[in-house]
Amino acid sequence: MSVTYLDAIRSAQEKALRDDPRVFIYGQDVGRFGGAFKATKNLAEKFPGRVMDSPISEDAMVGMAVGAAMEGMRPIVEMQFADFSTVGLNQMLNHAATTFWRTGKPCPMVLRLPSGGTPGSGPFHSQSMEAIYSHYPGIVVMTPATVEDAYTMLLEAIELPDPVVFCEHKLLYYHLKSEALPESAVPAFRARVVRAGRDITCVTYSAMVHEAVAAAEELAEEGYEVEVVDLRTVKPLDTDTVLASVARTGRLLAVGESWPWGGASAEVVARVASEGFELLDAPPKRLNAKDTPIPYHPNLWAAHRPTAVRIAAGLREVLRY
């Protein structure tokens, strides 16, 4: 029996609903319909009254979760697409994120964002929002890349006393598979070395981890050993694991699927440049999507986002220096 990335997300929610009476799910079409991507399939039937359809009101959905969290519940809000969470940004950035700081009382809630590009999805169903949420203090931002992380990190997110933005990648939903649900987890907030190497470090997260691994395999044929680091959680950022890897390799390429202005890959380069300058044998480089809205046609989309081919080219460029 195999488990997909989406199964892992559904199973984690089911486990949380079973184990913790404070957990409930709120979102558009998440009830009997089971959600646009079926991440809540059968949960409404199994947990009556705890998997609730919301109106199309992203601002109020997040606001409702803030209130419920203040009252001791552990709400999970599903945004139908990460892109639509812009409508709920105010409640997340100004309310959920400031509550602990302002009041000393926790605001434990999870905002699930079906994120990232898929062919044919276009400008409003493809976005990666981690940069915006990470910029604001008071929020944990998770970007799982594997079936195992999708499961264990979502359970972690639900248990944390803080608001968590859980960026789950739509491209991985159905295609990424594992043998079974994991029985252990990588420690919270730690990055993971996916593939060890001595020549260059490629730091990335979410679906780009798989592109980076493919690029590393391509470079292995050319005799280069690429170390791939999966950040797993972009906020807080595990600077220690990144610096330790750069200390081994002396070179860095940071990759993100989101836009190039700022964001997680920029933060990685900034930290390595300022805290690990003397570890570097070459200028660190970044690779992101192009600075345009995300295109609709698969031909354009494939050229817009970083791919294994572009990552391999980026790695070679840093290696040649």
């Binding site: 109020a60 606001g63 409702m64 209130g67 419920a68 009252e71 105010n90 409640q91 309310h95």
Partner: peptide, 23 residues
């Protein structure tokens, strides 16, 4: 404690009331 963004407290109070109902 209100945030400055007007109207934001309606859904928040609604959330508190949903939580009370669930409890």
């Amino acid at each position: 404690p209100m945030i400055s963004h007007l109207g934001a407290m309606l859904s928040t109070v609604a959330g508190v009331l949903v939580a009370k109902r669930m409890k």
